[in-house]
């Protein structure tokens, strides 16, 4: 699907909330680029509504949210309902990366997050997941 008509998978790599650790986001952004994806990086300290705005306007296939602050249970639902508001929730693949306790994962999945990638996830695994799950529009 991604090869058709020169279509390239578009991703937004987003840092949301107050944590300032963006090494992981940078590494992911680079790896995605090298995999042939188009990556839009949000920059640090973005509010959920900023992320929603960027995801909607850029019409991304994939939204990767990096959260290391532990506020995922507050921030992720806000982003998901924002996407819903603009009709973008059902055909955006939402991923969460960061340190997410095992018991929080089912809740995030229920919100509509497709996968949670914790520390130690290999880059190949993430890229492969995106390739096989990016929404077919």
């Amino acid at each position: 699907m991604s090869e058709q008509q020169g279509r390239s998978i578009r991703c937004l790599v987003a840092k949301v909330g107050l944590d300032g650790h963006d090494r992981g986001a940078h590494v992911i952004a680079r790896a995605f680029r090298d995999a042939g994806f188009e990556v839009i990086y949000s920059g640090l300290h973005k509010a959920p509504e900023d992320i929603v705005q960027a995801a909607v306007q850029e019409d991304v296939d994939v939204l990767g949210i990096s959260i290391l602050s532990g506020a995922h249970n507050t921030l992720v639902p806000k982003i998901m309902s924002g996407l819903e508001e603009y009709g973008a929730k059902k055909d955006t693949l939402v991923l969460v990366g960061g340190v997410i306790p095992e018991e929080d994962k089912p809740g995030l999945k229920e919100e509509g997050v497709a996968a949670v990638f914790g520390p130690g996830t290999s880059m190949e695994e993430t890229i492969e997941f995106v390739r096989s799950n990016a929404p077919d529009r």
Binding site: S8, R33, G36, E38, V39, S42, E49, D50
Partner: peptide
């Protein structure tokens, strides 16, 4: 990138005044 076709589109980071 002419090699992979991938890109990091970074202009958006500077668009901070009108964010939201």
């Amino acid at each position: 990138s002419p090699f992979t076709g991938g890109a990091v589109l970074g202009d958006r980071i500077r668009m901070a005044s009108t964010i939201g």
